[in-house]
Amino acid sequence: MAKKVKISDEAYEKARELVEKKGYSSVEELVEHLINREYSEEGEGGGEEERLKGLGYIS
Protein backbone atom coordinates (compact mmCIF):
# COMPACT_ATOMS: atom_id res chain seq x y z
CA MET A 1 0.00 0.00 0.00
CA ALA A 2 1.37 3.42 -0.95
CA LYS A 3 2.35 5.76 1.88
CA LYS A 4 2.10 9.56 1.97
CA VAL A 5 4.93 11.86 3.04
CA LYS A 6 4.56 15.57 3.77
CA ILE A 7 7.18 17.93 2.35
CA SER A 8 7.34 21.72 2.28
CA ASP A 9 5.90 23.66 -0.65
CA GLU A 10 9.39 24.86 -1.51
CA ALA A 11 10.78 21.32 -1.68
CA TYR A 12 7.80 20.23 -3.75
CA GLU A 13 8.39 23.03 -6.26
CA LYS A 14 12.03 22.03 -6.52
CA ALA A 15 10.93 18.44 -7.06
CA ARG A 16 8.59 19.48 -9.87
CA GLU A 17 11.38 21.41 -11.55
CA LEU A 18 13.63 18.38 -11.32
CA VAL A 19 10.94 16.11 -12.73
CA GLU A 20 10.71 18.29 -15.82
CA LYS A 21 14.42 18.83 -16.21
CA LYS A 22 15.56 15.25 -15.64
CA GLY A 23 12.70 13.45 -17.38
CA TYR A 24 10.99 11.68 -14.50
CA SER A 25 7.34 10.81 -15.05
CA SER A 26 6.22 12.19 -11.66
CA VAL A 27 7.34 13.62 -8.34
CA GLU A 28 6.69 10.19 -6.82
CA GLU A 29 9.16 8.58 -9.20
CA LEU A 30 11.80 11.19 -8.36
CA VAL A 31 11.36 10.70 -4.62
CA GLU A 32 11.48 6.91 -4.91
CA HIS A 33 14.60 7.08 -7.07
CA LEU A 34 16.44 9.31 -4.61
CA ILE A 35 15.47 7.10 -1.68
CA ASN A 36 16.47 3.92 -3.51
CA ARG A 37 19.79 5.45 -4.51
CA GLU A 38 20.60 6.38 -0.93
CA TYR A 39 19.38 3.00 0.29
CA SER A 40 21.51 1.02 -2.14
CA GLU A 41 24.62 2.94 -1.05
CA GLU A 42 24.06 1.65 2.45
CA GLY A 43 23.59 -2.00 1.50
CA GLU A 44 26.24 -4.67 1.08
CA GLY A 45 25.28 -5.51 -2.48
CA GLY A 46 24.78 -8.94 -3.92
CA GLY A 47 23.90 -10.91 -6.99
CA GLU A 48 21.14 -13.18 -8.13
CA GLU A 49 22.92 -15.85 -10.13
CA GLU A 50 20.38 -18.47 -9.10
CA ARG A 51 17.48 -16.40 -10.44
CA LEU A 52 19.16 -16.15 -13.85
CA LYS A 53 19.19 -19.91 -14.32
CA GLY A 54 17.41 -20.93 -17.47
CA LEU A 55 17.59 -17.50 -19.10
CA GLY A 56 18.13 -18.61 -22.69
CA TYR A 57 20.42 -15.73 -23.64
CA ILE A 58 23.18 -16.77 -21.26
CA SER A 59 24.55 -20.05 -19.95
Partner: peptide, 14 residues
Protein backbone atom coordinates in the same frame (compact mmCIF):
# COMPACT_ATOMS: atom_id res chain seq x y z
CA UNK B 1 19.97 -5.26 -20.85
CA UNK B 2 18.59 -8.53 -19.52
CA UNK B 3 21.17 -8.23 -16.77
CA UNK B 4 22.26 -5.44 -14.48
CA UNK B 5 25.45 -5.59 -12.47
CA UNK B 6 25.89 -4.79 -8.82
CA UNK B 7 28.95 -2.51 -8.74
CA UNK B 8 29.65 -3.61 -5.17
CA UNK B 9 30.14 -7.24 -6.14
CA UNK B 10 30.41 -7.32 -9.97
CA UNK B 11 27.63 -9.94 -9.77
CA UNK B 12 24.57 -10.07 -12.01
CA UNK B 13 20.94 -9.35 -11.26
CA UNK B 14 17.89 -9.43 -13.46
Amino acid sequence: DFLARDPKTYLPKL
